[in-house]
Nucleic acid binder design. Structure first.
Length: 774
DNA sequence: CAGTGAGCGAGCTTCCGCTTGACTT
């Protein structure tokens, strides 16, 4: 017999709590939700006032069976799932599925896992809050209705297997719209003037420093005019303004900020971060990693305080409570923090250690004092101009939390850190050194990274800590969005240089637009987005989630009937679905690019069966006219391809010449440009060869080079067994036989292997397991 | 891996949020 059975959501949490509760309590876990809507017929009886059809999914049956067994033995069952909408629903589903009688069931909640909080919750148990459960049911059913009605519309009107939903479709929209802003962005430039100045102080010591113009000069002529004035000007200090400044530490991590910092500092993707954090949590090193709360428990605060006092001293301590500002935050947990602040280091993999270090530093720093600075601004008078130059300096007076932790930013063009300024006073005469006017271009809005997209979604109140990583994966798996690097492009900028009263002009080259691990919309993402925005404006609205959340709050407060809310939403929505099916065309992102100068026929681009294509002319059976097709290259988008680029696609494959009686053909394939000869493929060299221009001489050179390499590749052949080869590969020597490759054990010398030895290795090699499809 | 693009149609796909392994590489 079990006196008290406590059910929480996660096994790691169960283990911790069991320690706090003593012998009369048995703690187990439900592993999250144990029931969900059936997939058949929506799992909702729409005609019967949206009656949900809940089932226990197969992978939860085992857990439910175990729980049933434990419940039978228990006197009292304590439902201790999280203190939020989903947690309340989990408790309710448990009570239904396990058929818990009200007299032996108690609902408890605690928002931090500490002994006092848990013992307190046991004293203040309650019953299940039906209103809160109804708010969750409304949330669940709304998501199911939206997802399962919209997705099939896409199957019929765009492409099978696509998906749409309240969260993912808005995520895709953000990326598509940002890309269009970037495509339509026109960089403008202006000139920024900066110079070095020199003076000698009363002790005869020389100092120099840098200052720059407040004003940006809109063109070269204006900048030049200013430099001309400077060339005959005297310079002196107009005034020196000093003011104190401070910088406060960031709050401890939530899921979203952890994902952002871990991407910036450790280069991890959103899902990598979560799986490493999961490991740390299961090992008991950190608190729960899916949270939107900034709160730290009293116990945690005291522990942090102790560490700071010991390691840095009393003046570094500044214990404070952070308040969550995020829309729709549910605050069922603490912020992410080390379980034991005393543990500065942990055991584990390299990545686990580094992520733990980040979490530890961030949590400790959040309880440390502000960093104090003194900022100095020096205005400099230019005698021949009304423009002033400004020098700014910053001196750190007290390190505070900066001793431990500096948060990174996504801003790639952050101001370089301001340094120390020499002691300047008003009226100090200055001698100008070199003065430069440098052309600076405006920057396009930044593309999203996985982590900055999570940040944006969180700001909009869309999605939850447990779904950020899966959502980011879904939109990539559907092909809506690609995570890619892009090479930068070169551009020239002008520098005007004033030195010894002479102005010289020079051109320099800079790289811009280089991208690393950024999210780009792919063709299908843009087509789906445009379709959904056109026909389902309300759901694609960035505020849709925030709007329905208000109604969920009303349901939770008992002010609104959940079925009524769903009905008000569903009736017009469903009508719109039917209307869309009736009126919309098949959506393939078609765009007319212009006319082909050679044939005078129309050139269009669109989505074809195997991907995006360009098409010249049409298939007209009566006149025997055939359309010509060409696939877009990787990286080209239907959205932005020009007529010229489209026509270029038809120039390949191109016959370059002849060699050994066979044609040399240049083309571009999946792995880049190549030369085909006798059904063999020879890659063109990146950055050197151009498939449109490559000559037959160069092609033959490449073929000979490859043959030479291939002959070095061969270690041993067998006359009586031509299929068997011993070769040298990228990872060392291997055996190739019937299109399969086999590793050669390190202990043997490849060249000495006999035919029999090879077959023995082949036989002993374990058959590779087939990739199982989920 | 080096190309394709018509049309028919059975049977399938799909949501968000709460969890942790079971799977590969």
């Amino acid at each position: 017999m079990i006196d008290n059975l406590v059910i929480v959501e996660s096994p790691a949490k169960a283990k911790t709590i069991e320690k706090f509760l003593g012998k009369n309590f048995r703690v187990t876990s439900s592993m999250g939700h144990i029931r969900d809507l059936a997939k058949k017929d929506f799992g909702i009886d729409i005609k019967n006032n949206y009656k949900p059809d809940y089932i226990v999914p197969n992978d939860k049956k085992k857990i439910v069976a175990e729980l049933n067994k434990l419940v039978k033995e228990a006197n009292i069952v304590w439902l201790a799932s999280d203190e939020d909408r989903e947690g309340e629903a989990i408790a309710w589903h448990l009570s239904k599925v396990l058929k818990l009688s009200p007299d032996k069931t108690r609902r408890i909640v605690f928002s931090e896992i500490t002994k006092t909080a848990i013992q307190e919750s046991i004293k203040t148990y309650r019953t299940i809050d039906e209103n809160l459960v109804n708010a969750q049911q409304a949330r669940r059913i709304l998501d199911r209705l939206v997802g399962f009605e919209l997705s099939p519309v896409l199957w019929k009107k765009v492409k099978p297997s696509l998906s749409a939903g309240r969260v993912q479709s808005v995520a895709v929209r953000l990326i598509v719209e940002r890309e269009r802003e970037i495509i339509n962005f026109n960089a403008t430039s202006s000139f920024r003037v900066s110079g070095t100045f020199e003076f000698t102080d009363s002790q005869n010591k020389k100092h120099h420093f840098k200052a720059e113009s407040h004003k940006r000069f809109s063109n070269k002529q204006e900048a030049h005019d200013f430099l001309v004035k400077c060339s005959t000007s005297d310079f002196k200090v107009l005034d020196v303004i000093q003011r104190p400044a401070k910088k406060s530490p960031s709050p401890p991590f939530t899921t979203s900020t952890l994902q952002q910092e871990s991407a910036r500092k450790l280069g991890l993707s959103v899902s990598q971060t979560m799986s490493v954090a999961q490991k740390l949590y299961e090992s008991g090193y950190i608190t729960y990693m899916r949270t939107d709360s900034l709160n730290l428990s009293q116990t945690a605060l005291s522990a942090a305080e102790k560490v700071i006092r010991k390691e840095y001293g009393d003046q570094f301590v500044n214990i404070q409570h952070y308040k969550t500002k995020t829309k729709g935050a549910q605050e069922a947990h603490e912020a992410i923090r080390p379980t034991y602040f005393e543990n500065k280091n942990i055991e584990g993999s390299n990545t686990e250690k580094r992520l733990y270090d980040l979490i530890w530093k961030r949590a400790v720093a959040s309880q440390m004092s502000d960093a104090l600075f003194e900022k100095t601004t020096v205005n400099i008078e230019v005698s021949n101009s009304t423009e002033k130059l400004v020098a700014q300096g910053e001196v750190l007076k007290f390190e505070g939390f900066l001793k431990l932790y500096i948060e990174s930013t996504d801003d790639e063009n952050e101001e370089e850190s301001k340094g120390f300024l020499p002691p300047l006073t008003a009226n100090q005469k200055l001698i100008a050194g070199e003065i430069l006017a440098v052309q600076k271009f405006t920057l396009n809005p930044p593309r999203y990274t996985e982590a900055s997209l999570v940040k944006k979604l969180e700001e909009l109140g869309i999605g939850r800590p447990s779904t950020y990583a899966p959502t980011i994966s879904t939109i990539q798996n559907r092909g809506y969005v690609l995570r890619e690097d892009r090479d930068g492009k070169d551009r020239q900028y002008t520098i005007l240089r004033l030195n010894n009263s002479k102005i010289t002009e020079s051109l320099q080259t800079e790289t811009y637009g280089k991208e690393k691990s950024k999210l780009f919309p792919d063709n299908i993402g843009m087509i789906v987005n445009d379709f959904l925005v056109e026909y389902f404006k309300e759901i694609l609205d960035l505020n849709f989630t925030a709007n329905v959340e208000k109604e969920f709050d009303d349901i939770a407060a008992g002010k609104l009937e959940w079925t009524k809310m769903i009905d008000t939403f569903y009736k017009p929505f469903h009508k719109q679905v039917e209307n869309t099916l009736a009126v919309s065309d098949y959506s393939k992102g078609e765009r007319t690019l212009g006319t082909d100068p050679a044939s005078g026929k129309q050139v269009i681009c669109r989505m074809g069966r195997y991907g995006p294509i360009v098409q010249i002319g049409e298939n007209i059976p009566e006149s025997n006219e055939k359309a010509r097709f060409a696939s877009l290259l990787k990286g080209q988008q239907l959205e932005s391809i020009s007529l010229e680029e489209a026509l270029d696609l038809f120039k390949l494959p191109r016959v370059v010449g002849e060699f050994e009686g066979s044609e040399l053909i240049a083309a571009i394939g999946r792995f880049g440009p190549y030369i085909r000869h006798n059904s063999m493929f020879y890659s063109l060299k990146k950055g050197i060869d151009d498939p449109y221009k490559v000559t037959s001489e160069r092609a033959i050179e490449l073929i000979k080079e490859k043959r030479e390499n291939d002959s070095n590749k061969t270690i041993k052949l067998f006359d009586d067994e031509p299929q068997l080869q011993i070769l040298n590969g990228r990872w060392g020597p291997y055996i190739a036989y019937q299109k399969k490759n086999y590793k050669i054990p390190k202990s043997v010398e490849p060249a000495k292997l006999s035919k029999e030895d090879c077959f023995k290795i082949i036989k002993e090699n374990p058959e590779k397991k087939k990739k199982s499809k989920k």
